[in-house]
Design a protein around this nucleic acid. Structure first.
Length: 419
DNA sequence: TCTGGGGTCCTAGGACCC
DNA sequence: TCTGGGGTCCTAGGACCC
């Protein structure tokens, strides 16, 4: 019998903010951006949740529900730092640890009873060790499968521990809403409700063939999940074998929709640079380049192209991105632009003989640029168009940067600042 | 309610090949 | 000659997670 733990930090972003500013403690706090911005809530304190504020809710809605809430942008670096601290603590308990996201982790504690004691005792030690290292609270679920451990930690929130002994899985799951199953979102929930299935217990009683007919491959996995089994989901494979990313992307939502080609073009180049930079950090090359366009009415389109050779070079990447964009843009105002690298290959990637010299020179230049960026910050060096992008974006989003100018007017004659 | 940004995985149709 | 079937790659879209 295997023994899995799922550990989930309580209101992680908010709690880290409180460490740096204790005056926030106990108050309604919303992390994600200012109250009047385009954007959604990344995290809400328990005091804010009492007003109905929850993550993924538009910031403006959160502000309406809870006008007295304190809105903060958040500090990504701090969350990453504290996530690392948690990871280090967990490694003392098991070599088989996997951070499933910035604020949650799975541990395989199979066979550690002699060392750590029974599951509840081990969970308490874990709880204390995490708090000692970070001054943050977490919730822990323990069970014979990762799926049940995850659902248990959710039920234990906040600041709790819940162990489901082997054999008790079905009894634990049966009364819970189907929505508690990871992977069952709004759409699947509605489909299940339409079949009269509301609780995980209802699901477990169904014929597997019925679920397969109605939901295909996913139905098969669903039947297993209703019984608390890991198989057939993303719980396949061992804990701890983390691999290379499968895609790398950056996107940007403009605070004001824009049809200004120079603004859009510059943003595409900037996003391309950010993506290729990260490709190089990971020593990866992308064979497929994709863009995403979102118009004012929220209609969203993606267009992809597979290159004849994989690349990690800004200019090659940006060229494909811009070409895709101009072949597909309707000239309507745009709300969001996104740039994606897919079909990632490790190693050198192939170049045609003709381009080899050019490519080698670019590689050298970019290595130097990356170094400077590392030392002085990402905005110091940029390809010309990217620099223009940073400038235009600033002016566009914050007209005060250019007194007396309408942010939507063409200001293409204006020179970008030089460093 | 007026909807971010970073990801993963799945489906489905068409091209193309044998 | 109006017509099979499987495999793989590519593209577009969508559900879902934190």
């Amino acid at each position: 019998m295997r023994s899995y733990f799922h550990l989930d930090m309580d209101a992680f972003f908010v709690s880290v903010e409180e460490l740096f500013d204790p005056s926030l403690k106990g108050k309604p706090v919303v992390v994600g951006g200012r109250a009047n911005e385009r954007g959604v809530v990344s995290a809400a304190s328990y005091a804010a949740r009492k007003f109905g504020v929850h993550s993924a809710m538009p910031l403006r809605t959160a502000h309406k529900l809870c006008p007295q809430a304190i809105f903060v942008e958040g500090h990504r670096e701090r969350y990453v730092e504290y996530s690392h601290k948690v990871y280090e603590v967990l490694q003392n308990f098991s070599p088989r640890v996997e951070m499933a996201s910035i604020d949650e982790a799975y541990l395989d504690l199979t066979g550690t009873e002699r060392l750590l004691g029974p599951p509840l005792a081990a969970a308490h030690s874990l709880h204390n060790a995490v708090h000692a290292a970070t001054h943050l609270n977490c919730s822990i679920g323990a069970a014979s499968s990762r799926l049940v451990a995850k659902i248990a930690s959710d039920q234990a929130k906040p600041h709790g521990i819940l162990w489901i002994p082997p054999g008790c899985e079905a009894r634990f799951l049966a009364p819970l809403d189907v929505r508690k199953i990871p992977g069952v979102g709004k759409v699947t929930e509605r489909n299940l409700h339409d079949c009269g299935i509301r609780k995980i217990g209802d699901l477990a009683q169904l014929d597997q063939s019925f679920l397969e007919d109605r939901f295909g491959k996913w139905g098969f996995a669903l039947a297993g999940k209703a019984r608390g089994e890991d198989a057939g989901g993303w719980f396949d494979g061992e804990i701890g074998d983390d691999d290379d990313p499968k895609s790398i992307s950056h996107e940007h939502t403009f605070s004001i929709d824009t049809a200004d080609a120079s603004v859009l073009d510059a943003m595409l180049v900037r996003l391309s640079e950010m993506v290729s930079r990260r490709l190089r950090d990971h020593h990866l090359h992308a064979r497929t380049v994709q863009i995403k366009l979102r118009y004012s009415d929220f209609s969203t389109f993606t267009r992809a192209r597979t290159l004849d050779h994989a690349t990690q070079i800004d200019t090659e990447f940006a060229a494909a991105v811009r070409d895709l964009f101009y072949k597909n843009w309707t000239k309507e105002p745009i709300r969001l632009l996104g740039v994606y690298a897919q079909s990632l290959e490790s190693g050198e990637g192939q170049t045609s003989l003709l381009d080899e010299d050019k490519t080698a020179r670019w590689r050298k230049t970019l290595a130097a640029v990356d170094k400077i960026r590392e030392k002085y910050g990402d905005t110091t060096v940029s390809l010309a168009a990217g620099l223009t992008a940073a400038f235009r974006a600033r002016v566009h989003e914050n007209p005060e940067n250019l007194p007396g100018k309408d942010p939507r007017s063409k200001d293409s004659e204006k020179e970008p600042p030089h460093d």
